[in-house]
Design a protein around this nucleic acid. Structure first.
Lengths: 161, 161
DNA sequence: TTAGGGTAGTTTGAATACCAACAATCAACC
DNA sequence: GGTTGATTGTTGGTATTCAAACTACCCTAA
């Protein structure tokens, strides 16, 4: 009998969690607990998938939202992305530095910027969207395609809290 | 025609997102996108609810897991909580400093600690669990109690990615 | 024309997260 | 006994987040 004291359940490097050997207590019934685990796991999986592009889910969402809404302001973008506007400042600085996004001053309101993608940004967005679709198809399968619609409706309701 | 390009919809301070006025494009179908919004919203709501205790969901989960598994090591705890072990070092330092958690050296393996709650930690955990149950009942309602079981099963599958 | 209040974006500070690298320790093998 | 490889927890570096305070600007009303 060799060791297996604190034997962890198998799981890749960053075992998502829920080692069956451990007691979860009340956490076992909490939506919030699993929501965090699921979000983090999905986040990491996407980050790994597009690592070569130096992109993470947050940046991708920003790029996608600008692509869909050219001319959008940073504040409107922050609301759509569900992030504080102050969070977007460094993110956009990075995207502008990488020549993926253009910031244009608006004549009618000199406080705000009109954001749009560069040609390079458009190209990158296309590639990333391809990977994102593949990623989300994987999530679809885990959720079960027959449950997807209700699953997303539930998430949307939760997002409005 | 006055412009109303970036017209934001109404939403509390930190509008969760999904402004109907904005185009979401492919994001509209991505589970990952809504997963992040829902997780963040639920996180913030819980943090607001227990603000007076200076606790956030991460700390609560740590406390709850130690409470359920006295003697657990930091590495096992990190797996159960779905966090990197290095993330737990400062969190546990804080909980120990606040006299909520005890770190005990293990004779059989002097590398590791055996974590447990202090009496004060137990009392706080009880109070927090009360709030957490109330919080999660609110989430239950948003998800729809008849969908909860399937919803959590889906999240658990996602967490294993 | 100017005073007031509201809005856009930035800055700063505190949390929280991952990862890689490290010292100490353990375990297994020869 | 001694070498080798794995594991435990910490440290340091980087990234991301929110919230509050700030500047610059807009708009309305007197």
């Amino acid at each position: 009998m060799t060791k297996n004291a604190g034997k962890p359940g198998r799981r890749g490097k960053n075992g998502a969690a829920a080692d069956e050997a451990l007691r979860l207590g009340p956490l076992a019934d909490f939506i919030g607990f699993y929501l965090r685990l699921a979000q983090e796991a999905s986040f990491q999986a996407f980050a790994r998938r597009v690592r070569e592009y130096q992109m993470r889910p947050g940046r991708f969402a920003v790029l996608a939202l600008i692509g869909e809404n050219p001319g959008i302001s940073q504040t409107a973008l922050s609301r759509a992305a569900g992030r504080d506007k102050s969070t977007l400042t460094p993110a956009l600085n990075d995207l502008v530095r990488r020549a993926l996004v253009k910031r244009r001053r608006v004549a009618s309101d000199r406080r705000s910027y009109a954001l749009s993608l560069t040609a390079k940004g458009e190209r990158l967005l296309s590639e990333l969207t391809f990977h994102a679709r593949a990623h989300d198809r994987m999530l679809d399968e885990l959720v079960g395609i027959e449950h997807k619609a209700e699953f997303i409706r539930a998430l949307r309701r939760l997002a409005l809290v």
